[in-house]
Write a protein that binds this DNA or RNA. Structure first.
Lengths: 345, 345
DNA sequence: TTGAAAGCGCTAACAC
DNA sequence: GTGTTAGCGCTTTCAA
């Protein structure tokens, strides 16, 4: 019995052929005699061989690994925990990661999880890719002005973003037609009879926040509602609750509100309830994303669905094409949102 | 300008020294003249060199990567999405992953995320480690009778489990003194005056479910409460709601309930509210975990805190020791729970 | 269709 | 304290 792990050489000897032949069989290259093929396979089984990834990567120059990176600004470590912990607790990230993984798994690939929220950690991401530890990156930015996409683009490293960057950068991305989502929300609220509308927006320095608001406003303006009170939130539960409270204090007559994501909508519903408003009887609420928060919320949220798993899958697909060189130009793929009607509006 | 990435050779030439010397500087090996050190560093900066991971791994036999694997039984793909998506949405997993990442990050390591819920995917995990793609595995099992720990142990692959396996396996693990947690819950409920207690348990085929129940029962028995109605749940929101409904139907007089995790407690609170019970005035509720669900729940949950980030950090630490050979025998580290009093009890 | 041989970029003896 | 050299295990021309 050999004490080290079996190598190609061992298998070759066992099968009575050369290393090259074993390699061909393993990699499914044609032009190998069927008899020899099965002899090799037997030898592989007998020796319990499995190819050494490092050795293979060294010559193919492929890590067969991709990085899933969550990139944010360097926020203070709140009591909600580290950046990584906060992101992992966010249902939005969960759906994106799930979509990526479901695309990768059938291909026997597994993502490396990275969190970047400082210059040092961003540099680490770039270094990781440069040294060939991963072939490309899927990046989810949580903030406007995130410098990572540019760093990656400058280094000519394959990457695909989830959502359009705030400033133009020559990289591929997948995104949602956020404005259409805002319109959907406006039309639904109007259709159910709401007349005193307001909105809790996302951060107004990121495209998703801006576009959802723009679409909502635009649809309302076209129906004769030129002015809508707004309160800006930060896509978190707490910020949604706080924004709702402000709105309620200044405009107690509100009968319908569009909240730019589900997590904030959950916070808003809570504030509404504490303020003695029934949802949807007194105030109808429409959320955004259709994340797990939409179902966890009481009442369950009527929301604008973002097909995140699909978007994430496409993102991974695009990255693979870039890595393989099948696609060289930056590409964007935009998905359409869909209204999901539940109890809150 | 060279078109390929710079190699050690390039840096050596640039600095006028040998490859070995550059390697020494890069790896911080002593016995290098300070002048030469800085000359090398300059050359590294000038060439923009970064070491090729595959080449290094090939000779060091270290991937400098660990796998974070979530292992479950092959459940049908419910409408809640794939296995990966479900796990990612679970606040329990989020805290574990966050803890692992926070341990790894300062060490410039990044975990590879793997999900195993079938024989094929479990084999993939084993193969991944065997081929040296990762040096070890951190495994979180979601089910009793998970065969993965045994597979890993048999292959002598470094791994550490989160929670004691249902059947004894010679591997290291971190865990909580679950029974003590159950006791804490019982004492708190009794102390606040509850006399008609009940409990929603976790799955009774896993140690965590059994032990929490045993501790709860034990503490009550010692105080003269020999019989407690129970309803078994599956650690999910829905199962908690369903179990609570059963309990309420059969024992409408209940005035206090210990629910074996926060997610189920959230579901239980919802059922209680729908059933016209005020929490905690009519029925006090104590959860378990102190996950994000505890804060999201209305009222906020009084719960038994599991220091998961710390446990996860220790798990990663143990794995590193095993990988480095500093630790060879299976080890267990048990943490103590703590009661966190909030609004629900 | 198969084999021989040349590296991929790096580390680690070993020699100086 | 530094350089020389021998591989690590694999893929891939190039010949046969």
């Amino acid at each position: 019995m050999i004490r080290r792990l079996p190598t190609l050489e061992d298998v070759a000897r066992e099968a009575g052929v050369s290393r090259a032949t074993v390699s061909r069989v393993i990699n499914g290259v044609r032009n190998v005699d069927p008899d020899i093929q099965s002899a090799v396979r037997d030898a592989v089984a007998r020796t319990g061989y499995s190819p050494n990834r490092a050795a293979r990567s060294l010559v193919t120059r492929r890590a067969e690994t991709i990085a899933l990176v969550v990139s944010g600004a360097g926020e203070p470590e709140g009591e909600k925990g580290s950046f990584a912990a906060r992101m992992l607790a966010d249902p939005f990230f969960g759906r994106v990661a799930g979509g990526v993984i479901d695309f990768l798994r059938p291909r026997s690939m597994h993502p490396v999880l990275m969190f970047a929220d400082s210059e040092a950690t961003r540099a680490e991401v770039v270094a990781y890719l440069r040294q060939g530890s991963a072939d490309g990156a899927l990046v989810v930015s949580t903030h406007a002005e995130d410098p990572l996409p540019e760093l990656l683009a400058e280094a000519a490293l394959p990457c695909v973003l989830f959502a359009r960057p705030a400033r133009p950068v020559p990289v591929s991305y997948v995104d949602l037609a956020h404005a259409d989502g805002g319109r959907l929300a406006a039309e639904h609220l109007l259709a159910r009879g709401c007349r005193r509308l307001a909105t809790v927006t996302g951060p107004l320095d990121v495209p998703a926040g801006q576009d959802r608001l723009a679409g909502f406003r635009d649809a309302l303006a076209r129906r004769g509602h030129p002015y809508i009170p707004i309160a800006e939130g930060g896509f978190t539960y707490d910020s949604g609750a706080a924004a709702m409270a402000r709105l309620l204090a200044e405009h107690p007559q509100i009968d319908g509100v569009f909240v730019a994501n589900d997590l904030m909508a959950q916070g808003a519903c809570e504030v509404l309830r504490e303020g003695g408003r029934r949802v949807p009887e007194d105030v109808a609420v429409v959320g955004f994303d259709d994340s797990s928060a939409a179902l966890a919320c009481r009442p369950t949220l009527t929301t604008v669905r973002q097909p995140m798993e699909e978007m994430a899958g496409t993102m991974a697909q695009l990255l693979q094409e870039h890595i393989e060189g099948a696609r060289t130009e930056p590409t964007s793929v935009i998905f359409e949102p869909e209204l999901v009607v539940r109890a809150s509006a």
